[in-house]
């Protein structure tokens, strides 16, 4: 892969450069559209679909059957209880699992019998249970509390480390972007939110900030090494840093996405819905969003925020003046 190494060299020396910081309006626009879609479409669709772990309900499982048609199972249930919102999934390869909203005991018994006769299996092959949420309100509340404390503390730590609150603010904005888009993905495609998905979501929290910190560290280094006589504007320095870390960003996201993709592939195609698919889907979307937001949102936004500062205005003005002079003379 000499060409990729060459690509890295060119990015490092500046022979090849992508004007990421300069085209910030495009990226802001894309981000705004994506975030709007991630918020509006799930609302129009009626919010997230939470798994039985969050809501509780009734569950029926027909084992040892050969008929795995999903509409068939759901029709059987809705004939007995029309408003039960049955959701059917195939488990393993010979069982049909039907989860419904909470049903009365009589309805449960009726459904149990209806399923047994519809699938032509003995009633004992159809189990019915009545379950509450295993992921209670308390887990959600504590997780959210943890989230808020974490974001606040991480913002302080980053502000101290980078010695500017602007980097910290931008990193948090990028984080929110990733979280909204990942969550929106579940809402838009109507994928069930399960505890595994939430855990994947929390992993993204760490990954997104991690990725931003790595790139910001390079930006901080590049911009702080610029002397008073630097021939680059502040925005160009930020852009150079982003370009120089581009190979790192590509390599890291590919390396991170390979195992996740493997889990997603195995989880979704070989096993059907389940923990593996739920956790890897959140990660897959989140890693892509995280890498994108670091390069295309965090870096331009940071340069944008700093561009209003007096010292930087002065420096950019001087740099531009030198260039003007050299072009005209």
């Amino acid at each position: 892969m000499a060409s990729f190494a060459q690509f890295g060299n060119d990015l490092y020396t500046g022979k090849r450069s992508y004007n990421i910081v300069g085209r910030r309006k495009i990226w802001y626009g894309i981000a705004a559209v994506m975030i709007l879609a991630a918020i509006v479409i799930p609302i129009l669709r009626g919010g997230f679909i939470f798994g039985i772990e969050f809501r509780g309900g009734s569950q029926f499982q027909v084992s040892h059957t050969t008929d795995l048609s999903q509409p068939f199972a759901s029709d059987t249930v809705t004939k007995v209880a029309p408003a039960s919102n049955p959701r059917v999934s195939i488990v393993g390869g010979d069982s049909v699992r039907i989860q419904t909203d909470q049903l009365s005991d009589t309805e449960s018994v009726k459904i149990q019998q209806a399923l047994a006769s519809a699938y032509n299996v003995p009633v004992k092959n159809v189990t019915a249970s009545f379950i509450g949420a295993t992921w209670g309100q308390d887990i959600t509340r504590q997780a959210l509390t943890g989230l808020v404390i974490f974001v606040a503390l991480a913002a302080i730590v980053m502000a101290l480390y980078f010695r500017t609150w602007k980097m910290s603010l931008v990193a948090i904005v990028a984080l929110l972007h990733d979280l909204i888009i990942t969550a929106g993905f579940y809402g838009i495609f109507g994928i069930e939110v399960t505890p595994a998905a939430v855990i994947g979501f929390l992993t993204i929290l760490g990954y997104s900030l991690y990725d931003t910190v790595v790139v910001f560290d390079k930006i901080r280094e590049t911009t702080s090494e610029d002397g008073a006589e630097s021939r680059r504007t502040f925005g160009e320095s930020v852009n150079l840093a982003v370009n120089q870390t581009l190979v790192r960003s590509i390599n890291t996201s590919i390396v991170a996405i390979l195992p996740v993709g493997a889990i997603l592939f195995i989880g979704a195609f070989a096993l059907g819905a389940g923990t593996l698919r739920d956790i890897s889907l959140a990660l897959f979307v989140g890693i892509i969003a995280g890498t994108y937001s670091t390069i295309f949102i965090a870096a331009p936004l940071y340069a944008h925020l700093r561009s209003g500062e007096e010292a930087i205005k002065k420096r950019d003005k001087r740099t531009n003046a030198v260039r003007q002079a050299s072009v005209t003379s």
């Binding site: 992921w135 209670g136 308390d138 887990i139 504590q142 997780a143 509390t145 943890g146 989230l147 404390i149 974490f150 503390l153 991480a154 730590v157 980053m158 480390y161 505890p195 939430v198 855990i199 929390l202 929290l205 760490g206 900030l209 991690y210 990725d211 910190v213 790595v214 560290d217 390079k218």
Partner: peptide, 26 residues
Amino acid sequence: IRTIVASDTVNFLAAAILFIVAVGNV
């Protein structure tokens, strides 16, 4: 190492806070 320590600190912070505050699977 500077970059690695800084970014790992952020990740570790997330882990430590969630460990202290959260319950259950989290």
